Amino acid sequence: MTGVTVPEALRQQAIWCQAFDSRFTAELCDVMADDFEASGIIAHLTGDWPTHPIQDALSLRLAGALHAIVLTEPEGDLAQVWPQQGRDWTMEEAWPVAAETLRVRESWVREFLKSPPQTNEVRRAVGLWPGLCAAAEVFEGPMDVLELGASAGLNLSMDRFHYDGGTWQWDSPIDGPRVAMSTQWSGPAPRFPAHAAIRHRAACDQNPLNASKAEDRLRLRSYIWPDQPERLERLNAAMEIAEAQAITPDAGDAADWIKAKLATRAKDALTVIYHSVFFQYPPQSVRDAITHAIETEGASATAEAPLAWLRFEPGGTLGNAQKGPSMILELIEWPSGRRRTLADIDPHGRFVHWHGA
């Protein structure tokens, strides 16, 4: 293991979970850190972790493994002490059962920990959809979208969701299931041009999940913090839409994929590349290759086939001086070359401060 220790990673995750309104997961991470230092089951499972535990989201892998057991065994011992369906809980009651569960299921847990978390946070669409509409304002033709780091591609269906910003609402004109979401919105209301509609959608991920597969649906659900049932409800609804649309992201390297997609993009449409809380994870060489491919294509974009890059990321990742727990929503457009910060936004979409144009 290099750099940060496992207990340090767990305690850092506890701080983040507390900031994002998951007291249960925060306390769970703290007690797992204590268990590691007491040479308990967490030390046994992760004491030889070979790489960086924060970059690998080891804390979320551990929490996700326990939640997956709860979801698959709703009448089991662990589920009885977990905050499912509004159940009261205390960590003093929950942790001994969790520790024993980890011991009994050690082989399965070790296998679960091998895969990085897949956190397809649906409420990020409360910023992404207004961002796509902002890109569509100057072009009245069709819009094709390409998502990087899409996991199961749930946000590819953002034009089928219902949004409530308090002072404004937008509902999809498309018939079918809905994902309803609200947020604390400040600033001017976004604009939704009548012509803004997604014609074609595609996505890639190194390890894409498929909403039609039970094991992939379980993995997505397991990473939702169990004391946040409204997030689970949104996820379930979004998976239903993705399954009905047969959405499956392509497996592949993001840099190679976007280069190939841009080489064959339509010449009668606005092409929008977008991603959310993705750009910090690939190595710098991959980020540079993605940037080069997009900027090169942008240099040849025309008014008849414009290009846009919508980025929902930490400010520091995008070379912005913004700091703190919120992200920025940034839009770069070609052929104009215009670059603007549309919003400051919470990673889970809880609040949006919209700058607009």
Rank of each mutant, 00 (worst) to 15 (best):
I328M: 10
R339A: 14
S285T: 15
A260F: 10
N320A: 15
W168P: 06
P7C: 08
I41Y: 07
H353T: 15
L102E: 04
A196W: 00
S326N: 14
D30H: 10
P173Q: 10
I15G: 13
R234G: 03
G187K: 08
E140W: 08
I328N: 00
W49L: 06
C17L: 11
T341F: 08
T46V: 13
A321R: 13
D144V: 06
A65Q: 03
R105F: 02
V97Q: 01
R191T: 14
R61W: 02
V179H: 08
L331G: 07
V4T: 14
L71H: 08
W185T: 12
V179C: 06
Y163I: 02
A244D: 13
D268C: 08
T341S: 09
M239F: 11
I224V: 15
P283T: 10
E233I: 07
L235N: 07
A269L: 10
V97W: 12
E100A: 12
E93K: 12
L310M: 00
A152Y: 09
I345R: 12
A203E: 04
E8K: 11
T296R: 12
I54R: 01
M143N: 01
L209E: 03
S212P: 08
G86A: 05
V97K: 04
A299M: 12
S222F: 09
A266F: 08
M32Q: 08
K323R: 15
A289Y: 10
D216Y: 01
M1W: 13
D21I: 11
W95H: 00
Q322K: 13
D164F: 07
G316H: 12
S212K: 05
G127Q: 07
F112I: 03
P50C: 09
D250A: 14
D34A: 10
P190I: 07
L102G: 01
A255D: 02
K114L: 14
A237V: 01
L232M: 11
G47S: 05
D227R: 00
V179D: 02
L270G: 00
I198N: 05
D35G: 08
T317Y: 10
K323C: 14
G165E: 07
I273G: 05
H200R: 14
E37V: 11
F139P: 00
R178I: 00
T341M: 14
I15R: 15
D34I: 03
S172V: 11
A98R: 00
P117A: 01
A254F: 01
P96L: 04
A321I: 12
L235H: 05
A242V: 09
Q284F: 11
L71I: 01
P7K: 03
M158D: 02
R217D: 00
H292K: 15
K261L: 03
D48L: 13
L45M: 00
V31C: 09
A14L: 08
Q206V: 14
L331T: 01
L60I: 11
Q118F: 06
A269W: 00
P177H: 07
Q118R: 08
W168S: 06
A255E: 04
A242K: 02
E333H: 04
G131I: 06
R350P: 03
G3I: 09
E100S: 10
D344I: 13
D164L: 05
A196Y: 01
A308Q: 09
P53A: 02
Q85S: 13
P188N: 10
T46C: 15
A289Q: 09
H348W: 08
A152Q: 00
Q322D: 15
R234C: 07
W95I: 03
V126D: 09
A38F: 04
T101Q: 08
